[in-house]
Design a protein around this nucleic acid. Sequence first.
DNA 1: AGTAACTCGACTGATCTAGTCGACAAGGTA
DNA 2: TACCTTGTCGACTAGATCAGTCGAGTTACT
Lengths: 152, 152
Amino acid sequence: MRITAKADYAVRAAAELAAAEPGAPVKGELLATSQRIPLNFLENILRELRRAGIIRTQRGAEGGYLLALPAKEISVADVIRAVEGPLAAVQGVRPDQLHYDGAATALADVWVAMRASLRSVLEVVTLADIAKGELPKSVKRLVADAHAWENP
Amino acid sequence: MRITAKADYAVRAAAELAAAEPGAPVKGELLATSQRIPLNFLENILRELRRAGIIRTQRGAEGGYLLALPAKEISVADVIRAVEGPLAAVQGVRPDQLHYDGAATALADVWVAMRASLRSVLEVVTLADIAKGELPKSVKRLVADAHAWENP
DNA sequence: AGTAACTCGACTGATCTAGTCGACAAGGTA
DNA sequence: TACCTTGTCGACTAGATCAGTCGAGTTACT
């Protein structure tokens, strides 16, 4: 149940691209320093984002990285899936293909519901939302509830 | 974003205990065979559940494992946390103590919302629900939505 | 031609995963 | 009391994943 450094870095770099002037390439080194990500590692990650069709690249001097689509059409889930594969898995298999016996039969549905709830956040928040600092209402409500939960 | 074998096994074994006659110890070997879990590994897991106060044990002949609380008072989240630590973490730190700079500032709230949505499922479903095969309404709704999503 | 950028694959140390194993402790029964 | 059944604990391990690092190569602008 953890977000790896790789996924975290990927979303942060993508958010930085979403905040940049559209059409203008951003250099890897700038992404690395502004988000404090080791450049070599970041390059591996950006390569995977490019293969997934999320970003484009421009080589040579004045080159860099750009989003391949408008920022509002790329969700956090898209970015995570590009670098980590499926959003949710139990022992490596997707929740919908699980089968349990005995008293745990209903557990399969719990995992499906878990993935659905995860999606209700990650599939809805776009890079544009993050760059603007304005999350969708349903997500803001969850954040507010979470804070109420922590501070009684 | 994955559930490990350990967490999966823990919940399944706990569900099996929830389905057993209350007050009657269930032997480790029975849990292992009925859920197809390697016995040696399961013992490690049950030990952690006991340390967390989720199950009790009875030694000697006719001994075994029992829930330490009524099944309806133990959530799936409780079981997972007992064997895996915090439900959600980014690079090992809890979502509420993250701090990002620049374009990714709002990302911290996304992780908080993600955890909240995870909780809205895992904290709500109890072992009794799973053993009975009757999940809470809000969770059933998520499962139904998920199926609608997959089969258009 | 030169240089500033991305591109790719290989490599690495540390940690985690999913177990296994053997010796031991406690409780019930004959 | 002896014995058998069952849980308890720690140590160990092969393999995968994580989080990087590094060096050599390409591409495109000037």
